[in-house]
């Protein structure tokens, strides 16, 4: 039960958030001002995504190697997201979505930077070359597919691949990893997950409206989902292996990943 207290019966109803007009709500949450005040809430007083005074947990050589491997994959994913979000700005259908995507570009740039910085903190001398060596083939193939969709100027397909598939995958994986990670990595991941909420929510809602208004496009997006499934499954399997998680976790993460796809009616 929450800590909400009942008001006295004589109290009057005050206007509240949920009374907002739909268009006013959408205008607000897509704005740069909303984004700026939101990220200020959880990034102020952090350095590279974590409390600079936070002491490092001791890591065994094996755990450190595993963490480096998984962070390299995260960097490849964030690099793909950064380039795709920037490309989506020119494809977005209106000012509101363009402004939101500009905030996502900033988020993705931050994610790439904090993960690369974390690799440096873990003793990796040249993080970018380490990412190039260790990123999984499935993640690199996913990145190529995203670039192809943006180059083809297919707004709905690129939006699905980036803001539904990739962002949902990152949301569930980062959230799961944060539960077992060392404290510094956990702090970084928890703040990245807060950004991912906006990105995947934007993707699901924007695509949901698009599919409602252009039902003929549904089969095309469904086919893309099928095409991407094996890349998502392979990326998820790589991550679970790097993290040393039990096989059941892969099933559960896969189920969580598919929730938004199911709500959009793109499963099956």
């Amino acid at each position: 039960m929450s800590d909400a207290k009942r008001r006295p019966p004589h109290d009057t109803i005050r206007p509240e958030l949920h009374d907002l007009d739909k268009s006013a709500f959408l205008e607000e949450v897509h704005s740069f001002e909303f984004w700026f005040q939101a990220v200020e809430g959880y990034l102020a007083e952090t350095t590279y995504g974590h409390d600079p005074e936070m002491a490092e947990d001791p890591l065994s050589d094996e755990d450190r190697e595993r963490l480096i491997g998984v962070l390299c994959n995260y960097c490849a994913g964030e690099s793909a997201a950064l380039e795709t979000a920037a490309g989506l700005v020119s494809l977005a259908p209106n000012r509101m979505t363009k402004v939101f995507l500009s905030t996502q570009v900033a988020d993705e740039g931050r994610h790439l930077e904090v993960f690369l910085h974390r690799l440096g903190e873990l003793g990796v001398e040249n993080p970018e070359s380490e990412v190039a060596k260790r990123a999984s083939p499935s993640m690199l193939a996913f990145k190529d597919k995203l670039a192809e969709l943006v180059a083809g100027r297919d707004w709905a397909s690129a939006l699905f691949a980036q803001n539904v598939a990739l962002e949902s995958l990152e949301f569930v994986v980062f959230g799961r990893h944060a539960k077992t990670a060392d404290r510094v990595t956990a702090q970084i991941l928890e703040r990245v997950v807060k950004d991912e909420r906006r990105h995947m929510g934007f993707g699901e809602n924007e695509l949901g409206r698009y599919l409602r208004d252009t039902p003929d496009s549904r089969s095309r997006i469904h086919d893309l989902r099928v095409e991407l499934d094996h890349l998502v499954d392979a990326t998820l399997a790589d991550t679970v292996r790097h993290l040393g998680l039990p096989a059941d976790d892969q099933k559960e993460l896969g189920r969580m990943y598919r929730e938004s796809i199911e709500r959009l009616g793109l499963l099956g």
Partner: peptide, 28 residues
């Protein structure tokens, strides 16, 4: 919120048919 798993709160008791907004994931 089924999209982002944040609890949405209102200043009044919620009932079937009510509309609420999830700002963290931009959902209606």
């Amino acid at each position: 919120c089924p999209v982002c798993k944040v609890v949405i709160r209102s200043s009044r008791e919620l009932r079937e048919g009510d509309r609420v907004y999830c700002m963290p994931c931009m959902s209606r």
